[in-house]
């Protein structure tokens, strides 16, 4: 415990020195010192309590993202780590600005979910030059130089596509031919590309599965509804809709109901995400299967950030813990879902 006290005291000194940049500095330093002296706080508070993390979020474009934001803020606040948070409103330039400002403020760790895959080398090099480690969450960057970030914590979108495909193969094991409409995410976004790839990898093995149409619904309800509406007219005999997220699936439900059909029965629906509204629709029998893409990665992120801060090596790729839901599992899980 002596070691932690020493670290806390050092942290307190460091924070007092840097205190001019933030009013909260001295308060936290005292907090850290008392915690160490009283030996009440967990070890994490001793060696990470003076750490400052800057997190640049994509935006608040969906229920999923909001749950992600809330969980990250909760996890850092539980761990007693200062979190500077910014919202890029889905624009890369805003995110780059936020990261630059974190570099100038001299935070200890920078973490962000890249809006798009490319165009990060310059700002990541700046962070590297300033000696600030970067942790990517949820989405990766497309860069040849993987020394630009410490670790990438997030879902494996290809695996999600695989899981969706496996369910479809089992569900239609006895069918002769299956016509599928795919509602793609935003064109060019990593989850859209990978979920399509993972899905086709599995169902492509059997020629009875046919994707009759594949259009982008931009991950939005309105998009999913509009596309489904039009495609149902030209492909009335479709059996299944595979949507790259719940929101588009919810839009598809509305379009199917408007066409006088029963979603989940006449046309089955498989989606990815498992946000609250999607789970509700699954429990109501309107969606048939959801592959979870968990936004609750706050605790894992705290763990990785603390390890990196303490100079430990972490894996370059850490996959979020995730599951899948059938209708019965959704009914059971719904009451205690956090989002």
């Amino acid at each position: 415990m002596k070691k932690y006290a020493a670290i806390a005291a050092f942290g307190a000194a460091a924070l007092t020195l840097a205190g001019c940049s933030s009013d909260g500095g001295t308060d936290e330093a005292t907090e850290g010192a008392t915690a160490a002296a009283g030996e009440t706080e967990a070890a994490a508070a001793g060696d990470a309590g003076d750490m400052v993390v800057g997190f640049a979020q994509v935006g608040a474009e969906s229920g999923w993202r909001t749950a992600n934001t809330n969980d990250i803020q909760r996890a850092f606040s539980d761990a007693g780590i200062e979190l500077k948070f910014s919202d890029a409103q889905q624009k890369q330039e805003n995110q780059i600005k936020a990261i630059r400002s974190y570099i100038q403020q001299g935070v200890d760790i920078i973490s962000f979910s890249p809006v798009v895959e490319t165009g990060w080398d310059a700002v990541l090099n700046e962070a590297k030059a300033a000696g600030i480690p970067v942790i990517l969450t949820d989405r990766s960057v497309d860069s040849t130089d993987d020394s630009l970030y410490e670790s990438f914590l997030g879902s494996d979108f290809v695996l999600e596509g695989n899981k969706a495909g496996e369910w479809v193969v089992n569900e239609y094991a006895d069918a002769d031919s299956v016509k599928i409409i795919q509602l793609e995410g935003t064109t060019g976004a990593a989850p859209a590309i990978d979920r399509a790839e993972g899905f086709i990898d599995i169902i492509g093995a059997d020629p009875k599965f046919e994707i009759v149409a594949s259009q982008t619904g931009d991950f939005t309800r309105a998009g999913g509804k509009e596309v489904t509406e039009a495609l149902l007219k030209s492909n009335p005999d479709v059996d299944l809709i595979y949507a790259h997220n719940d929101d588009m699936g919810l839009g598809a439900i509305e379009a199917i109901e408007a066409a006088g059909l029963e979603p989940g029965v006449d046309i089955k629906i498989v989606t990815v995400d498992a946000v609250h509204d999607g789970m509700q629709a699954l429990a109501d029998g309107k969606i048939n299967f959801i592959v979870e893409c968990s936004p609750l990665l706050g605790d894992q992120l705290v763990e990785i950030a603390t390890a990196v801060y303490n100079g430990e090596t972490v894996d370059k790729r850490i996959v979020t813990e995730e599951t899948t839901f059938t209708q019965d599992e959704a009914i059971a899980a719904l009451p205690e879902r956090a989002y």
């Binding site: 939005t220 309105a222 509305e254």
Partner: peptide, 14 residues
């Protein structure tokens, strides 16, 4: 009309 059509208020996309 847009909000009613998608039965949700989506401040980002409406």
């Amino acid at each position: 009309i847009i909000t009613s059509d998608q039965t949700a208020a989506d401040a980002n996309n409406t």
